[in-house]
């Protein structure tokens, strides 16, 4: 991924912010609220009845557009965790065109990205945003004329669903960024993925049980891809999960836990595939980064999938 940068990070969360106890009272959780609070969760964001995942994606991309950073997009890689929001049919679907209302195309049209091609990515669950970065890098490598790829992820849980997966409090949300050849806040050094389809139907407990060994391996291998060791990473930006999880992993990987960054855990919970961007945005805004520092973004998701990207700070 020589000469590629990632920047223009943006995100959007569901419009309704609820406390975990309120959601428990509404029957939206499996765990007791005090158990989720003991894990570090407090608030989460839910879409209103008429708010769609596409609305969230549009809001995130609109923020990039408002900054004037959405020009010359050659491709859109649009990652989702959940299946597309199909129209509610009153009976059997007779014309399957109704199932092909693809959000990436709508985004392209809505923002006038006429030169962009669209790519959907939807089998990497909560790791999809990092998969989008990888695909963007691959596309730019095979298309020498292209300069910029818009990466988007957006999901909302369907009405009536539990807002909890694998003991994590869920928020509806979207995130977006641009991977390109122009200098941006971060150089994209590598993206590494592990999949285990043998655990495709893993339950919550197997997902938690396997999390540690796989994430340990993922971070070691991702660091090795850029010629370093986990302990030499300057920052690890994680998805929002039980706060003990990374206390454990930091010890196992010999990473200073003070360099593990997930400040949005209490305020946003696990934003499906977007929280790593929410947290990275906070790190970029914190003033803590220095040029040349290496930042690992780490995510795990159903499938089961684990992905890590390693960035180098170019413009703190």
């Amino acid at each position: 991924m020589d000469g590629l940068y990632a920047g223009s990070f943006a995100y959007a969360l569901g419009a309704h912010k609820r406390h975990v106890r309120e959601s428990a009272g509404a029957g939206l959780l499996r765990s007791a609220p005090e158990d989720l609070e003991s894990a570090g969760f407090r608030w989460h964001h839910l879409c209103g009845p008429d708010e769609t995942a596409y609305d969230l994606a549009r809001a995130a991309v609109a923020e990039i557009a408002e900054r004037g950073e959405l020009g010359h997009i050659d491709a859109i890689v649009y990652a989702t965790c959940l299946p597309a929001e199909w129209p509610h049919a009153n009976g059997p679907i007779r014309d399957v065109k109704d199932l092909m209302d693809f959000p990436a195309g709508r985004l392209q049209a809505e923002f006038g990205l006429s030169r962009a091609i669209v790519v959907g990515l939807h089998q990497q669950a909560c790791t999809g945003m990092l998969g989008a970065l990888r695909l963007a890098g691959a596309l730019l490598s095979t298309e020498p004329q292209w300069r910029r790829v818009l990466c988007v992820t957006a999901d909302r849980f369907p009405a009536g669903a539990f807002y909890e997966q694998a003991y994590n409090l869920i928020s509806d949300g979207a995130a977006a960024c641009v991977v390109g050849r122009d200098r941006a806040p971060c150089r994209l050094l590598t993206v590494h993925q592990i999949s285990n389809g043998g655990l495709a139907r893993a339950g919550d407990d197997e997902t938690v049980g396997t999390y540690f060994a796989y994430t340990h391996r993922l971070v070691r291998e991702a660091a090795a891809r850029v010629g370093t060791a986990p302990s030499a990473l300057d920052w690890v930006v994680t998805q929002n999960t039980h706060e003990k999880a990374w206390q454990i992993l930091a010890r196992l990987l010999e990473i200073d836990h003070d360099r593990v960054w997930s400040p949005s855990l209490p305020d946003a919970g696990h934003v499906i595939s977007a929280d790593v961007i929410v947290n990275l945005s906070a790190l970029l805004a914190s003033g803590k980064l220095q040029s040349g520092q290496r930042v690992a973004l780490v995510m795990a998701g159903f499938g089961l999938n684990w992905q890590a990207a390693v960035l180098e700070v170019a413009q703190p």
């Binding site: 003991s38 003991y167 655990l199 919550d204 039980h242 454990i248």
Partner: peptide, 29 residues
């Protein structure tokens, strides 16, 4: 299922995991 061999962990980490698991009610873990 391609399950990995376990990673040796220090005592504090195992204690943290057991402590965290106390809140994972209802499942087998």
């Amino acid at each position: 299922r391609m399950l990995p061999r376990p990673v040796p962990c220090d005592q504090a980490s195992f204690h943290d995991m057991v402590s965290a698991a106390r809140a994972l009610r209802g499942g087998p873990l």
